[in-house]
Structures are given as C-alpha cells and as structure tokens.
Design a protein around this nucleic acid. Structure first.
Lengths: 192, 192, 192, 192
DNA sequence: CATGAATGAGCTTTCATTCAT
DNA sequence: CATGAATGAAAGCTCATTCAT
C-alpha cells in the first residue's frame, strides 16, 4: 500500500477554509447554496473546491461529519462529568439532548442538506465515539434508576433526528419537555 | 350576482388528475419533482397545470390542503367514537397520532415540500375542523384523568410535525411509544 | 360568389369591443399585450377574439387600419378647409403633420406593434382617401408657391413614419420645426 | 490594490464572438432573438453567454455600447477632417448623419432592442466622446455661417433617433435631403 | 356562434460539473 | 496544483393558438 503522501500545508488550509465556508453558506442559505458561492466565501476557485470534494454530496457529508465530531465531543464531556459525580446521568442526558437541538437550530440547513442529498456520514470513528458516550450515559442513568430499562442509543438518535430544529426556542423547549418523560421511569410532573 | 358558471366537467377531471399526480410525484421524488414530470404523470400539458395552479407553490399548497382535509376527517371520526363511548379518548388520540404518522410516511415529501416552498395552508376551514376535533379529544382525555392537564392542540401539532415519517415502521412505532408518555399522567410502563 | 351574409348585430358589437380593447391594451402595455388580456378587456373569450381575427397580426392590422381611417378623415377635413379658403395649404399641411404626431404619441405602441409584427395595412380604401387628401394639400401648397415642387405624398409619409412619437411634447415640437423647412420652397436647393 | 488579473485569451475571444453573434442575430430577428440562438450562432453554450452577460438586457446593452463607440469614432474622425481644413463642417455633419443612418439600417433592430428592454447605455465615456465631437462640428458650421445658430447636439440626436433605418436606401437618402434644410441657415425661419 | 380549457414550443435563467490555461 | 471559463441539462413559467363543450 503506497503510503499517502503527507498533504501539503496549503492544501490542509484550503480544506479547512472550504469546510468553514460551506458550513456558513449552507447554514445561511440552505442546501441550495451554490458551489460557486461556497468557493467564493472560502476564497478559492470552484476547481479547488472540487479537488477536495469531488461532489456536492461529498462536501455536505464532510460538513456533517464535522458536526458529528462536535456532538461526540459534547457527549464525551457529559459522560466525564457523570463519572466525576459532578452531575446525574439523567440530567446530563437531557441537557445533552437540549444542546444538540440548540445546535441543530443553527445548523438546521445542514441537516436538511444531509437528508436532501442523501449524504452518508463519512466518519464512522466519530459516530462511534458519540454512540459510546451516549450509551455510557444511558447505562449510568439506568443504574441510578432514573432511565427506563429498555432505552437504547438508537432511541436517543431517533429523538433528536426528529427534533424541531426550525421552530422557535419556546417550541423546542416544550418539545423537550414532552419527550423526556418517555425516557424516564417516573410519571410526568407539571411542565416547566 | 353572476353566479360563477359551473366548472366544466373535463376541467374538474383534470384538476383531480393533476392533484393525484402531483401527490404521487412529490411523494416519489421529493419537492424537486419537476412541473413537467407532474404534468406528464397527470397526462396533461404543462400549460394546463399552470392554468389550474399558477405557481408550483400553489400546487403544493393544494396537495397539502387535501392532506389536511383527510386529517380533519380522521380526527372528527375519532372524536365521534369517543362521544359514542366506543373508545377512550387517550386511546383514540394515540391511535390518531399513529395513523397520521403512517400517512406522513407515504406523503412525507409533501410535508417537506410544504416547508421548503413556504406553502401557506389554503384551506383554513379544514385546519380548524382538525384543530377542533383534536381539542375535543384532549378535553375528553383530561376529563378521564388520562391526559396531562397542560397538554394543548399545539403540543399535538408539535409532535406530529416532528414525526419520523421517513423511518421504517418499527422506528415509527418506537417513536410513538417514546412520545406518548409525555401526554399521559401516568408513569411509563415497560414498552411494547 | 356567395354574397357574404349580413353579419349578426352582436358580432358587429363584439368586433367593435375587441378593437377598442385591443387599441387600449396595446397602447397601455405595448405590443406584448397578451391576447387573453385583450379578450378580457373586451369582455369576450379568446375564442371569440380568434373568430374575428385569426391571428394576432390580423388584430393589430385592424387596429392600425382604424387609425388610418382617422388620419384620412383628418386629412380630408384639412383639404376641405383649404378649398373653403379658410386656411393656407402649407399651414394646414404642417398642422396636419403636428396632429398626426400628437396622435402617434398616444398610439405609439400601435405603430411599434405594426412594425414588430409586420402588419400590413388591411384597408386600402382608407389609405387611398388619406393619400388623395394629402396630395390635394400638397398641390394647393405648390400652387401657392409655398411648397417645394418635388414634394410628394410619399415624402409626407416618410416624415411621419419617423416622427418621434415616444418623445416628450417639447421634443416633438422641435422635431416638427426642424423638419418643415424641408417642405417649403424657400432656400431649398434641388435635392440630391 | 489587487490589479484585476488579465482576462484569459479564450474568454476575450468568446466575448467578441458573442457580441458579434448577438449583433447579427438581433439584427436579423429583432430583439426577440433567443439567447439559445445567439449562443449557437456564437458557437458557445448558453451558460457561457450568461457568464459574460448576466442578463439579456446586459447583452443588448453591450451591443448598443459597441455601436455607440463606433459612432463616436466616426464623429471624431469627421471633426478631425474639419480641423484639418479637409472638408467643410456642414458637409461633414450631413455626411456623418448619412453614415449613421446607413449603419442604423443594419443595426436597426439593435436600437429597437435597446428601447424594448430599457437597456441603459453602459459606456458613458463613448457617449460623451460622440457628443463632444458632434458639438465641435456644429460650432464649426455655425462659425462658417452654414449652420443655424440654435442647432444643438440634441437636435442631431433627435434627428437620427428618428431616421428611417428600416427603409430602402432611396428612402433614406430622400429623408436626409428633406431633413438637412432644417439645419442650415438659409431660408430657415426662426423656429416656432 | 361563444366559451375557456388545453396545448406545447419557447422563453430566460441557474448550477453542478469538467477541463483548458 | 489552483484557476475560473465553458458546458449543457434542467428548471419554472408564458402565451399564441386550437378545439371540445
């Protein structure tokens, strides 16, 4: 296997600029942001953009991958706090859900883009980091007796894949309040 | 008062064909289904399509309106069964949610289209019929002591606007199971 | 030759309504006025419009023909006044030119339409009435010694076919002042 | 200051081809010449055409601008000949008018297009060059005692904006003969 | 004979992608 | 390896004209 030559410094810089610009543009104008606009925002020519990402789908996938990486970081931090005893697992899990939704609100178009273009997550490593951390949170919560026994990582994914990212904050909070009882073992309390 | 002349038979036929075709095409290929394709699927020329719906947005709005009408019918039927004593309000409400989700699975793209294009619901009458019926179900469930006191029609809308329409049936059922506890007053039981 | 059946009263009425509407619409929106708009303005359906004028070109030609008839009336009146001794031929001729330009200003789009669509004047009778009257004016002016001997009807046509109909009144008057010396006898050198 | 990189050779070539083709097509088929036809005539794809001229209006404006530049060159040359003493100002002015009309005969549709599309002349520099040169000719002719004292550049514009470009050469010459007396000093009566 | 729904080629314009420079 | 000009297949929409009612 010919070891991939170490990428040139400027190529790395360009890749970063492109990803940043793509994220911004897609956030701002939705998935219909043009490749030319993204290239311009990144300060490169389209050709360069296409050298790094052979397809628009690939570019979006990369943007999504970055987003996944951030989510994984967040989940791991939450798990660490639980391990420290700083916070309860249930609290951390719902707070995590809240934060992810918050982010989706900003990056909503990214999600839309991902779905629209059928972008496949490219970075399985980060996905697995995220899954592992969330699984840890769930197990801890179950051990505490706070989280229902049959909840899985997929349930969490299912929930935040359906979060109302495009709604105003009030609606997003309300949604979280409606949805969390499904995770816990206790009955609903009067809402926030 | 010049009573609007009765619409021509073939025009009515065409309108129906167009709506059907539009629903199918949008379901199949998403909101980016082309007007030409829809027209072809309806067996008419584009011009005809544009005579009936001056804008793509209008067409989508009409498709959505039909969908809303069906939902309203469904909700009213559910309310009627509760009034009969045939079924409990909570059961009917969750069953209703389930059915709406099921339908969205087929028409998922329609919903996406509506959002994408900013289509405004054209038929407020149907929308209000649906809201009234759902409100009735909620009140009945609250009277039974089954539904939490602060649940409103908007909560129901919020939930099914976020239903995972594009997921396989198993995921959709699971989602329903996760979400319903938020509506009820009781604690979660071990899931299905 | 089967004598053309006398046209029905309502058909005549419709023809008139259509011509009026067409003139108005074309004046208002230029030659790109749509057939549907013209029909609507006339209070008939497109089909009716097409029964009277098989082609847009034909319709425009008819509108132009009406205009020609009005011009012919004007020219004949001018000639009559000269015959009466009420006014001098040169004065009447320039006044006539001025009036025609004035009208063109309103109906400018009609002229544009005529050219754009290559409409051929349909009503030779009126054209000849106009030509005869103008020729009379010219002859009278030449007899008076006011109008140059080589001026012909075609010269007059040539001039007002190039009148600046779309210019403000000041420009139109200036144009007339620039152009009239070419008609008179004084100082004209024999034309090239 | 980032000096605009020198345009690529092929881009320049294409721009020229497009302008030529556009001029020809618009001349031949009027302003309704399709963008596709123009592109085909230029031997490029539509996209290229739109890269150079973002709008049909822009394209037409560019074509008109070229025409204005040619007129300005012509007027300046005429003025230069007068300054040399090679020719009289009046002769040069009428000859200039004649040449412009001749040209308009070819480019007539361009002028129509410009008006139809409300194209704004893009190159004021050329316009002013032309105006300055014509003003020079007028002043020289007035100094010679050949041109009437109240003639201005606007008069010249007014005349050739109404030149019968679409008429056969004989008519165009006749028109010029009819119109020139208005410019000269002999026999002109004080204007209206 | 009027109606107006249907037709369909045509329009301008956009944009992901390729490739000469 | 970057550049940005060129490509060309769509897209949504218009409108003169035809023809069933």
């Amino acid at each position: 296997m010919t070891q991939a030559r170490a990428p040139r410094a400027d190529a790395v810089r360009n890749r970063k600029k492109i990803l940043t610009a793509a994220s911004e543009q897609i956030t701002a104008h939705g998935p219909e942001a043009g490749m030319d606009e993204i290239a311009a925002a990144a300060g490169v020519a389209v050709g360069t953009l296409y050298r790094h990402f052979p397809t628009k789908t690939d570019l979006v996938a990369a943007v999504v991958a970055e987003y996944v990486a951030r989510v994984a970081d967040d989940a791991e931090a939450a798990l660490a706090r639980v391990a420290d005893g700083t916070a309860s697992a249930l609290e951390e899990l719902t707070a995590f859900l809240g934060r992810v939704i918050e982010q989706s609100a900003t990056d909503r178009a990214v999600k839309a883009a991902a779905q629209t273009l059928g972008a496949q997550p490219g970075d399985h490593a980060d996905e697995e980091r995220a899954s592992a951390a969330v699984a840890g949170l769930i197990r801890a919560g179950q051990a505490d007796g706070d989280i229902h026994a049959d909840i899985t990582v997929n349930d969490i994914y299912l929930l935040f894949s359906t979060a109302p990212a495009d709604q105003p904050p009030a609606a997003r909070n309300r949604w979280l309040a409606l949805v969390t009882p499904g995770l816990t073992i206790q009955a609903r309390r009067t809402a926030s």
